[in-house]
Amino acid sequence: MASDNGGALAVGSSAPDFELEGMGPAGAETVSSEALKGTPYLLYFYPRASTPGCTTQACDLRDHLAELRIPGGGALKVLGVSPDGVSALEKFITKQALSFTLLSDHEHTLAEAYGVWVKKKLYGREFMGIERSSFLIDAEGRIAAFKRKVRPAQHVAWVQEALAQLG
């Protein structure tokens, strides 16, 4: 269910390994791909906490989290990734009452591994930043589906469609 060319990453390929500090509803935590083995999860990359598009996307996920279920299984674990520091993530989670974990990829290592740290252009200025993207990882740690250039308001619908195709 890949939507775009993911470079070296493709449906069925192993998801890049990671270990990142972050903030969850219960406080600071460290999340690793190794600890997630056996658990399907959504890894979504967003440019910056507390910006309009990122807030729309995060709140929509929050509001529909209970509906995002693995076919024949439990709830989908959702992890948001941005280059923000942990303190910015804490403020974002608190202000928006988010019920999932946000991870700090301040050196954009994971973003680069997923190919979502890209050259962007805004008002004629070029800079490097996150391409809003989403990856559904299966219990074996393989990419089950992905979407590049996610539109914040359409993200949940894509996740629901991707989950339905897993069944």
Rank of each mutant, 00 (worst) to 15 (best):
G73S: 12
A75H: 11
L102S: 04
A28K: 15
A35C: 01
E107G: 02
Y44T: 01
Y46V: 03
L9Q: 02
C54Y: 05
G38A: 02
P16G: 10
S133K: 06
P25L: 11
G129T: 03
A28F: 13
M128H: 11
E131F: 11
E161G: 12
W158L: 06
V150I: 10
P71T: 06
H106M: 14
T39R: 14
Y46Q: 02
P25H: 12
F127M: 06
T51F: 09
A10L: 10
T30Q: 09
S14C: 11
H64W: 01
Q96G: 04
G27L: 08
S133H: 10
M128A: 11
Y46H: 11
G74M: 07
S13A: 14
K91R: 15
I70F: 00
Y41F: 15
E29H: 09
L65S: 13
S50C: 05
K95L: 12
L163K: 01
E21W: 09
R132F: 05
P25E: 13
K120V: 05
K91G: 13
E34Q: 15
A10E: 15
A2H: 10
D63V: 07
G80C: 09
S134F: 07
T30W: 06
D60H: 12
C54G: 02
G27K: 09
K147C: 12
G80Q: 05
L102D: 04
L122C: 04
A66M: 08
I143D: 00
D17K: 13
S87T: 15
Q57W: 05
H64K: 12
P52R: 10
A162I: 06
T30M: 01
R69H: 10
A144L: 00
K149Y: 07
T51Y: 06
L68H: 03
A139G: 08
V86S: 09
L110T: 00
I143N: 05
H155R: 07
M23G: 00
D60R: 07
D17V: 13
R125V: 14
Y123N: 14
A153W: 10
F45R: 03
F45P: 03
H64L: 03
T94V: 13
F135L: 08
L43H: 01
S99F: 09
V86I: 15
V150W: 07
A157P: 06
K95W: 09
E126V: 09
L20H: 00
A2Q: 13
S33A: 11
K120Q: 11
L98W: 05
R62S: 01
V150H: 03
G6I: 09
F92P: 02
E29D: 11
D63C: 07
D105P: 09
T51I: 09
L65I: 14
V86D: 08
G124R: 06
K37H: 13
G22Y: 01
A26C: 03
Q160M: 12
G115C: 10
I130H: 05
V31W: 02
S133M: 03
Y41C: 06
Y46S: 08
E19G: 13
